[in-house]
Nucleic acid binder design. Sequence first.
RNA 1: GCCGCAGUAGCUCAGUAGGUAGAGCGCAUCCUUGGUAAGGAUGAGGUCAGCGGUUCAAUCCCGCUCUGUGGCUCCA
Length: 635
Amino acid sequence: MAFQVKLPDGSSRKYQEPIAIMDIAQEISRGLAKNAIAAQWNGKAVDLETKIEEDGDLKILTFDDEKGKDIFRHSSSHLMAEAVQNLYPGVKFGIGPAIQDGFYYDFDSDHVFTPEDLIAIEKEMARLAAEKSTYQRSVVSRKEALEHFEKIGEIYKVEIIRDLPEDAEISLYRQGNFTDLCAGPHVPSTDRIKAFKLMSIAGAYWRGNEKNKMLQRIYGVSFPKKAQLDEYLLMLEEAKKRDHRKLGQELGLFAMMEEGPGFPFFLPKGMILRNALENYWRNLHEAWGYQEIKTPIILNRSLWEQSGHWDHYQENMYFTKIDDMDYAVKPMNCPGAILVYKHDLHSYRDLPIRVGELGLVHRHEKSGVLHGLMRVRCFTQDDAHIFMLPSQIKDEIKGVIRLIDEVYSLFGFSYHLELSTRPEKAMGSDEIWETATSALREALEEEGLSFKVNEGDGAFYGPKIDFHLRDCLGRTWQCGTIQLDFQMPEKFDIHYIGEDGNRHRPVMIHRVAFGSIERFIGILIEHFAGAFPTWLAPVQVRLMGISDKHLPYLEGIEQEMKLAGIRVELDRRNEKIGYKIREGQTMKIPYCLVAGDKEMEGNTLSLRRFGQGDLGAKPVEEIIAMVLEEIELKK
RNA sequence: GCCGCAGUAGCUCAGUAGGUAGAGCGCAUCCUUGGUAAGGAUGAGGUCAGCGGUUCAAUCCCGCUCUGUGGCUCCA
């Protein structure tokens, strides 16, 4: 009967009688028992009240563990559901999982929830938490479960049960008067959930399908301690200050106008930033063996029919007529690039051919998805198409992965990778897909990169690797992408002359590094919170005098800096130095340089570097050299 | 596209139990020439998103449209 429980620290405990996990936690330390949320028993998440009666590995989960956080949040969603059930009888329940940072629950209710309701629900949650109800698990048969939920009209739960696999164990969890279909586990009792806040209400389709009914989703966050909630809310507030839409307005970078929803306007300062990025892009791609082209925005119908876009992408395209003929505004650059390839005859000796284009594309995105610069209806892809021999695939993919990594590393971005495989509706044979997918997979593995696989999420013409970056609120946006394409070369019947003198089909890669200049700028703004590195800063240096009499001195320096290629502004306003400094700081200008009598005398400038404060007087030439060094870095 | 919320001066926002509006910043003019995050005075600025309806009267109430916003779905 004796059995042994191994703990993560390598120690183990021996027991003669079955024992509840909670009691083991209690034995280890009272603190641990107090913080325990649930446990992992032989790798499986279980409740603390689970009794152990055989050898195995045990880990007590707390809020410090990712899994522990999930369980805590999931229990919170049950608590919220109970509160909603009490306050709004007749509400039907969808699902209520834990998510990144919090939880939600979907409700089907005739009552439309308002922000005031959220406060009432929070109050009810607090009351229920104080009741210290335990979360009790029970295992029932499929029949019992169906009968129970059918009886109380929980149609969504019934649907879920019907879709569970035949052999699935069906468990219910009950706390207070609320019983939910749930695999668990949960925290031991409701009073564990000490701090929570309901954040927002949103519509969400049942089971994520837009053909289904839209339910009302309430989002919340929860923590074991009030201080953690406060810290989270503060962090959120800070994050919102980095929002690129807010900073874009404050720093005068770009604007959205009612006259063109989803079509961003770049203001002079934003254009400087954009051009700096594009210059960097051009130099980088030249170094990596790319040639640059520019193809038209409007091309005729037959091209789009040939590419398949006319049939497969029409709802996202804009159209126009010229001389009574149909034309489309390009949603992608590839057909243009292929026409460029076809324009000349190519030898196998010329491959790979890498053709880049900063291509402006227009796509009709649904109105509800537009989001600042992150999701727009016209954007510039830093596109490139690589035409190559089948034998060059893996090396080319590796090259692109390295190039994109070089770009993201320059800005200090961390990213995650996703490999998307064959979708249901795909063109081409399974064999081609297999070859293409494994080429991508092997390239990733040989580069030593970890990635997530998205089964069935590839483009209709080929599998892809996506690079995802985070915004200030942790939402991820796809930026870079590498897509293999065996279809377009077929459709456009492109070829190269092989060693044997015959025509052969090249393989094609579509790839972007920034993704879109617009989205990338959005990410950049949030990443740097508007305080760009000097080489990107719209204004690199602002000169300011203590009084008007120092203006002539500064004009000379302004001229000198301009000639040196520095983006410099002279603040000529009749204001005190504190006022000018303040504005220089709020505009996050890297170098604010002040001149007064002292500086004029010594041919110096007093330097204030953004983020470092007043650094004192330095010779003008020294400062110019400093600035130039930062600029040259990426020119 | 769908569900919720919002739209007042260039910007950030207040406001009216329905009687055509106010602050701060910014801008202009004047005073001030001041050493590192806001010196002072005066002034200009609004079809209260648009269109309809109710009303003696609508920025306010109702409807529709547009735009933004948080999500869902969809995608760089």
